[in-house]
Simulated assay, not measured.
Amino acid sequence: MNTVLAYYQHLGPALMALVLLTFLLAGTVKGVIGLGLPTIAMGLLGLAMAPAQAAALLIVPSALTNLWQLAFGGHLRGLLGRLWPMLLAIFLGTGAGALWLGMEGGPWVVRGLGAALLLYALSGLCLPALRLAARHEPWLGPLCGVLTGAITAATGVFVIPAVPYLQALGLQRDQLVQALGLSFSVSTLALAAGLAWGGALGGAELGASLLALVPALLGMWLGQWLRQRISAVLFKRVFFVGLGLLGAHLLVSG
């Protein structure tokens, strides 16, 4: 605990407040639309700290909220049987990306994070509803998995191209929510392994990430409450617009 407190004291009051508010907001968005926690966390924290440090903080909140998401729905066995090539490719792609690219810092990593956020926002705002023919899944699933893994290793963002691919499979709503939780869980575990291998994820970082779980869960509760009272479609559109602006800022400023 002393190590964790020292970690936050080292961040200082301003950065500590940013971490808490970021995970509160990210949890709220996830509570409303079912995704967005790691994406928002990486985007906002990337404004003030190295991407590897931001990625280390999101490990516990992302892992536990996604495990919770995939645990309910009753479709886990069927989804595993259908998606395992993509999931394996995500894990291997993240590992290869950690060895080859990593998140060592520097302007190119921040710009890569901005590009990933902007691309995801544009896909959410502009990409029409796609439907993928089943005959393309055997090769396109692993390809999307490898690309998702490489982007995850470089930026900490694991939604491109995994989310558009899963949305194109024609899954029922409950199946899609569970499939997203499954994909995000594998990505989070693979990212944690890559960060640990690179020395960016130790006991202090895990402890600090565990504390970040509190505002994330509070935000999820708030988001679930809001979901009953606001338009999820409008909220999602605002989310993508805000994410796109944030991504554009990171891409330009580096």
Rank of each mutant, 00 (worst) to 15 (best):
M1E: 14
M1Y: 14
N2T: 15
Y7L: 06
Q9D: 15
H10I: 10
L11G: 07
G12K: 04
L15R: 13
L15Q: 13
L15I: 13
A17Q: 11
V19E: 00
L20R: 06
A26F: 04
G27N: 10
V32P: 05
G34W: 06
G36D: 02
I40R: 00
L45D: 00
G46L: 00
A48E: 07
L57F: 01
L58H: 11
A63R: 00
T65S: 11
N66T: 02
L67V: 10
F72S: 15
H75I: 03
H75Q: 14
R77E: 09
L87P: 00
L88S: 10
G97R: 06
A98L: 12
L99P: 09
W100L: 13
P107I: 07
P107L: 11
V110W: 04
G112M: 03
G112C: 03
L113M: 10
A116C: 07
L117K: 01
L118E: 00
L125K: 08
A129T: 13
L130M: 14
R131T: 15
L132H: 03
R135K: 13
R135N: 11
G141T: 03
L143R: 09
C144F: 07
L147M: 15
T148A: 05
T148D: 04
F158A: 15
P164R: 02
L166Q: 02
L169M: 13
R173Y: 08
L180N: 06
S183Y: 13
S185L: 11
S185H: 04
S185C: 07
S187C: 14
L189K: 07
L189N: 08
L191W: 02
A192G: 10
G194M: 05
G198D: 08
A200C: 08
A200S: 14
A204F: 08
G207P: 01
L210I: 08
L211R: 01
V214I: 14
A216F: 08
L218G: 14
L218N: 09
G219V: 05
M220D: 01
L222F: 11
L222I: 14
L222H: 05
R227A: 15
Q228S: 14
R229K: 10
I230A: 11
V233K: 15
F240C: 05
G242A: 09
L243F: 07
L245V: 12
L245Y: 06
L250M: 03
